[in-house]
Design a protein around this nucleic acid. Structure first.
Lengths: 265, 265
DNA sequence: CGGATTATTGAGGGGATTCAAATGGTGTGG
DNA sequence: CCACACCATTTGAATCCCCTCAATAATCCG
């Protein structure tokens, strides 16, 4: 509908940018004109298979990458070749904003597709122009970065101070909430136990035991070997999950919010 | 010198904003005019004693707080009243940017003075105007947020995947580098072992043992009971420290950079 | 069908925790 | 100026959560 409003011919890839448009709206980019302008600069790239890198140290540094479909993760390999997953990325998320603003940063951090993904790119040159001509756009990107920081803080807290079970439960809750926010209602989290381990700072073996505990406790489904949520409420309770750090509209949500938590703040 | 260039009377608190000016320059805010404009909107507040909150849930939500002198930390209390320190803050750092952009976020996160601090504030209303009239300012704040995210990622990685000794060593390295970046050359890190524990996700008892190990290994000074760096090189080596994530100019620095690390990236 | 990745289960070890107590340093007030 | 309280630091002992190692299913993909 957005595209129609500005009277453009629908391009063949119509719909491909819906996720990105939704993202910008959630970042409070109010101006429909600004939104349509930036969308026009997105080039849609070929699909990426699971396990392939979307952004790595060898990628050209002259463009911003946007995830349009699929699930990816930002991660880094350590000296002992263990892996830390910083964040999971969903349709609409920006993969490498840090490379645009602080190009010297995070040389080794890479983005890898976890499922089949499709991506778009915006040239850095174009972004320079867009930002100078549409200042509101900068504020939206800024919000995106702050949201990422908020997610990192929450994960830091979980890894640092919580036991394995609430930790794993929290990560699953987050993914569920983020999937909901982009209208993906599936109870299956498209993430392996290996990924959970690398994101949560646990061994795969222990994650497996925790997952089985979560199944016994009624939070996850016992029927599959995948991560399938059986009871969102039970999971959130075990995780002590407070989704406010994700800064999402409550519209779609029927999460239990702890009343006293709200009251004393 | 900056203030003189625009022909202003030097206010009584001349020099108080130097740290903030330095910060903005490090965030690549090139325009001296923009810089002077924003500095003019900073109100200097009274001093804050160690242990007192600079920003908490009861603070008015209508202003941005800037640390002008001293050391503070952004942290959050958990349900079991343990504490997670997200980041340490130094002169020039913004304490509560997140409250400006995403006011619903991180309700419970507070900023507390670790040493005697002095702070400044900018009203959110003024910030609204400043940002719309000086778009470059928004990019600088955006960079500040990305830098914070970078620091969070590094800490996440440390806590998640490294043993206690390199973990503690890394945190100390970071503080040393950040102090250097604002021209504070002291080898004493103004942080207690309790703070180190809360930042590193360790118990105080264990941090103490690690600190003693670091002293035996020649990284910290044996002469004091404070955290005093005896050998920056040794510490960085034990920490496997790569300061690039801090995005700092190398000007002031004589840190050893691992050559092969640079070569293969 | 074979190779690779993921999931699962068992056993044993270790790093960090918790509990408990003593020491040293600092500041406040009598 | 000392006494006392408070906090940070230090040390010891016992415990436990999670890890590593190892091996076996189950699943996916070409």
């Amino acid at each position: 509908m957005g595209a129609a409003m500005v009277g453009m011919m629908k391009p063949p890839e119509a719909g491909a940018l819906d996720a990105l448009a939704l993202k910008f709206r959630s970042l409070e980019l109010d101006s429909e004109a600004d939104l349509q302008t930036v969308l026009r600069f997105v080039k849609i790239r070929e699909a990426v298979s699971p396990g392939e890198n979307i952004v790595d140290t060898r990628s050209p540094r002259r463009q911003l990458t946007v995830l349009l479909a699929g699930v990816a993760c930002l991660h880094k390999k350590l000296e002992d070749d263990s892996r830390q997953i910083y964040t999971f990325q969903y349709p609409g998320d920006f993969c490498d904003l840090h490379r645009y603003m602080l190009p010297e940063l995070d040389q080794k951090a890479t983005v890898t597709a976890l499922t089949a993904c499709s991506i778009g790119t915006i040239r850095h040159d174009d972004l320079d122009q867009l930002l100078s001509q549409h200042p509101k756009l900068g504020l939206a990107f800024w919000r995106a970065s702050m949201l990422e920081a908020s997610i990192l803080r929450e994960r830091l807290l979980n890894i640092s101070r919580r036991a394995a079970l609430p930790r794993v439960a929290s990560i699953i809750c987050e993914q569920l909430a983020r999937l909901e926010a982009i209208n993906i209602k599936s109870a299956v989290i498209p993430i392996t136990q290996v990924d959970l381990a690398d994101a949560g700072g646990l061994s795969v073996v222990h994650v497996n035991r925790i997952v089985q505990d979560l199944r016994k406790l009624g939070a996850l489904s016992k029927k599959t070997r995948t991560i399938e949520v059986a009871s969102k409420e039970r999971l959130a309770q075990l995780a002590n999950f407070d989704r406010r750090y994700l800064n999402m509209p409550d519209l779609l949500s029927d999460w239990k919010i702890d009343i006293e938590e709200l009251a004393d703040s």
